[in-house]
Write a protein that binds this DNA or RNA. Sequence first.
DNA 1: CGTTTAGTTGACCGTGCTCAAGGGGCGTGG
DNA 2: CCACGCCCCTTGAGCACGGTCAACTAAACG
Lengths: 248, 248
Amino acid sequence: MHMRSEGGQSDTVIRRLRSFRPLSAAAASALDKVVRERILRVGAGHDLVSEGDPSDRIRIVLSGWLARYKTLEDGRRQIVNFVLPGDSCDAYVYLLARMDHSISSLTPVTYSEIRREQFDELIASDRMLADAFWCETLANASIQREWVLNIGRRVALERVAHLLCEICERLRPVGLMDGNSCAFPVTQMDLADATGLSVVHLNRTLQELRAGDLIVLRERTLTINDLDALKNLALFNANYLQYPQAIG
Amino acid sequence: MHMRSEGGQSDTVIRRLRSFRPLSAAAASALDKVVRERILRVGAGHDLVSEGDPSDRIRIVLSGWLARYKTLEDGRRQIVNFVLPGDSCDAYVYLLARMDHSISSLTPVTYSEIRREQFDELIASDRMLADAFWCETLANASIQREWVLNIGRRVALERVAHLLCEICERLRPVGLMDGNSCAFPVTQMDLADATGLSVVHLNRTLQELRAGDLIVLRERTLTINDLDALKNLALFNANYLQYPQAIG
DNA sequence: CGTTTAGTTGACCGTGCTCAAGGGGCGTGG
DNA sequence: CCACGCCCCTTGAGCACGGTCAACTAAACG
């Protein structure tokens, strides 16, 4: 007995963009129309975009998780951000010539692929929509800065706690938190690459969080037992996520 | 016997933006006019912008170095990026409500402060100019991602080497490299905060670079003796800086 | 001339890495 | 149905990279 307001498949995307700007029903349905035109699926473990690719298309994630990552020649890998349902992979990157990083699917992913010209046309039709996409881009940059702080100055325990807090806070507004639990389809290797730790140490850090009764993480499900305590430990402050309603 | 093309005080800014988009003489002089309207100076060690400030003004750096940084409650500090002459502090951030980080001057700084409305008007007048500012914003995001990789996956020696390479490559297009040397007005504490290291270890890392005859750093001047060797050591690849002309 | 700030060095220690091995779940093929 | 391989998680042991603490020097500054 779900009432779907207007979005259908692109509900999540619209919720996400509305966390930045109020979108009119007209804008939402224009977006929905464009999104539906070319919906693709890909299994886990595929690169949607590779470093060096020309950046001529926009991709918007409808379901599934992805990771933006960079690698060094000798194979060291760093995840620089997660791409969650509702996020766009690279709105506006076509202003630059080439991708500076790769994006790979951590789970099976459904996404919409939009040609640059079509995207241009879409955002030209509605100022709020254009601004919402820009806000998303700027919010991503803000997250990126927090990650530099996280990896540069937080110790392992704080760092992992912070990442978990961030993911939950990002999943909540798109309706993917079920109370204090969420699907968490990420391997420990991915978490290690996202936090700049080794897999072994990440494993031990997770166990420390479990031992403190802060989290339960098993069978690809994360439950936060005590969110306030976890945020305290992580020195977490949600402002950098740039959700206007959540600030001050 | 310098011939100044059109910019005067905003030469550096125009060079910087032209590394992203060809700007017409008209666009350049419109920018120059706006820049000149309100030029401010500030000594070293001042916060131009503080975390939480409303982001209602644009600042463009004419001379001097600044650092974007974030802090944790207990005082740990991480520089997340340097702001160099020609860079704008925060074009377009006014789309978001508040600053997520602070910006402080590392040296005396000359900068232009532009009101949001005035900036809107300026970029509405010239598409290339608007795009150039957007490119700068996106290029900054790209640098931010590289920093996550740098701090997350490079060891101290590579990490410091990488930062030095980046700074030189960014100073070159705005004419601030003198051969292989440049003014380098940054304390070791700043470098430590930018690389996620302690001051003591940063000091030892610099000495290791000096011992390998890779760099000379004294009296606020950096000389790179062997840039190729330094880039090799740092696993440095300039693509992420997003200068179109420098990319394959 | 005292005080502050930046750089340097030594000694010690701890966080987090490496290497190595083993266990559990799951899909595939014999 | 079981064997096998693969992926992911876990654990132990040892070590190294980088942090902390402390002291000293040199230059800058009022």
